[in-house]
């Protein structure tokens, strides 16, 4: 429904929160890429910046939630307007959580900088982060385009991230078994990988919200899950 409201300030309200969510998305994507880069290149300054930048993400989230609450109270949105406001609120929550994971990644990378590197794991982590950021940015594009078809494709792609995570998990297990001195570093790397995988889940969640926004219902079919971790433990 792209027609405008009779009350035009309602359109401005909705456009305003949506613009803020997109801004938040940009900040979160940058934080993840920077954190992964800092980890691989052992760039202390960059990791520090990511940690500091999380405040701006949290601030935006709070602003969006407050604004959405005001819209609900003042405009009593219905139908696709209601779904838009609910979607914006859920997107903001997902992005805020993802921002926290980026900050945590930066913190752990600072710790890891004081330890010997473990094989090629940080390179794999960075590739995984890039893939997740791509998912996130595709999901946000699908949101702006109100494109449920693309959202379904994005949702199906989450498997790739899960598989990468499982591969990294097995790699880290091997390092730890071979050389117990790497255990601390590997545990940090494992948490980092797990957190990136969770960001992937948030990207999938955003794609699912797009389906809800467009079709009025969340997809009910369970997406395929190949979890090698449960088998290897």
């Amino acid at each position: 429904m792209q027609d405008s409201h009779i009350v035009s300030s309602f359109d401005r309200d909705l456009e305003g929160v949506q613009a803020q969510v997109m801004k938040m998305g940009g900040l979160v994507e940058k934080a993840l890429l920077d954190a992964a880069e800092a980890l691989e290149l052992r760039d202390e300054a960059l990791a520090g910046k990511v940690r500091a930048a999380d405040q701006a993400i949290d601030g935006l989230e709070e602003m969006i939630q407050t604004e959405c609450a005001r819209i609900i109270a003042q405009r009593a949105p219905t139908a696709s307007d209601l779904r838009t406001v609910l979607t914006v609120m859920r997107l903001a929550t997902a992005l805020e959580r993802s921002g926290d994971y980026a900050k945590n990644l930066a913190k752990r990378s600072l710790v890891l900088m004081g330890m010997a590197p473990v094989g090629t794991a940080t390179g794999t982590v960075r590739r995984m982060a890039k893939l997740v950021v791509q998912q996130m940015s595709d999901a946000l594009d699908a949101y702006i385009a109100r494109d449920a078809v693309r959202a379904r494709e994005i949702r199906a792609r989450d498997q790739e991230i899960d598989q990468m995570y499982s591969g990294l998990f097995r790699q880290l297990l091997t390092y730890m078994l071979e050389d117990p001195r790497t255990i601390t570093a590997c545990m940090h790397l494992h948490f980092i990988a797990k957190n990136i995988e969770r960001v992937g889940d948030h990207a999938t969640g955003i794609a699912e919200q797009v389906i809800y926004l467009v079709e009025g219902e969340l997809p009910s079919d369970d997406r395929p899950k190949h979890d090698a971790v449960s088998e290897s433990i």
């Binding site: 027609d3 139908a79 696709s80």
Partner: peptide
């Protein structure tokens, strides 16, 4: 949809 969301 148009009616309940206050659209023309």
């Amino acid at each position: 949809e148009s009616y309940i969301t206050g659209r023309i």
